[in-house]
């Protein structure tokens, strides 16, 4: 009886976990620009991995594997935000974004001020390409 219940719970976790990975894939295809696609790459798959690892833990029924599963998830928690930050930062700096999808851009004013300061200090250096790259 208990085994059946655990099997059902683990099965549900696996299906929802796979659904989350699917959500990440759909998000990659459907979101408008690089910056919003990064959201699909970080949130649903972290939960998806958690659910799949939880299902594994339930099915294997061994205490020895629990620390490994926990470690795998913790490493994912630590690395996903860092990669999102690095890609997002590079994407913003190289203007891989669609500005019309942004309601507000409070960083633009800061960048503008920094550029003006730079120009005042070192003089204008050649042509500055201000065009956004839209894929």
């Amino acid at each position: 009886m208990l085994d059946t219940v655990i099997d059902i719970v683990a099965g549900t976790f696996m299906i929802v976990g796979c659904l989350m990975s699917l959500a990440a894939g759909i998000g990659m295809l459907r979101f408008p620009d690089l910056l919003s696609r990064l959201h699909a790459a970080t949130k649903p798959q972290v939960l998806g991995l958690f659910l799949l690892l939880a299902a594994l833990g339930l099915e294997l029924r061994s205490w020895a594997v629990l620390p490994v599963l926990l470690l795998a998830w913790l490493l994912q928690l630590l690395t996903a935000p860092v990669s999102a930050h690095m890609v997002g930062r590079a994407g913003y700096r190289t203007r891989h974004l669609k500005r019309e999808t942004l309601i507000a851009d409070e960083l633009a004013a800061v960048v503008e001020a920094a550029e003006q300061r730079e120009e005042a200090e070192h003089g204008r250096d050649g042509n500055r390409d201000r065009a956004d790259f839209i894929d």
């Binding site: 959500a23 759909i26 998000g27 459907r30 979101f31 408008p32 910056l35 919003s36 699909a40 913003y92 999808t101 942004l102 309601i103 507000a104 851009d105 409070e106 960083l107 633009a108």
Partner: peptide, 13 residues
């Protein structure tokens, strides 16, 4: 959002 809003999703910095 990915399924129903897709390309019309707006965001902010």
């Amino acid at each position: 959002l990915a399924v129903f809003r897709g390309p019309r999703t707006t965001s902010a910095i």
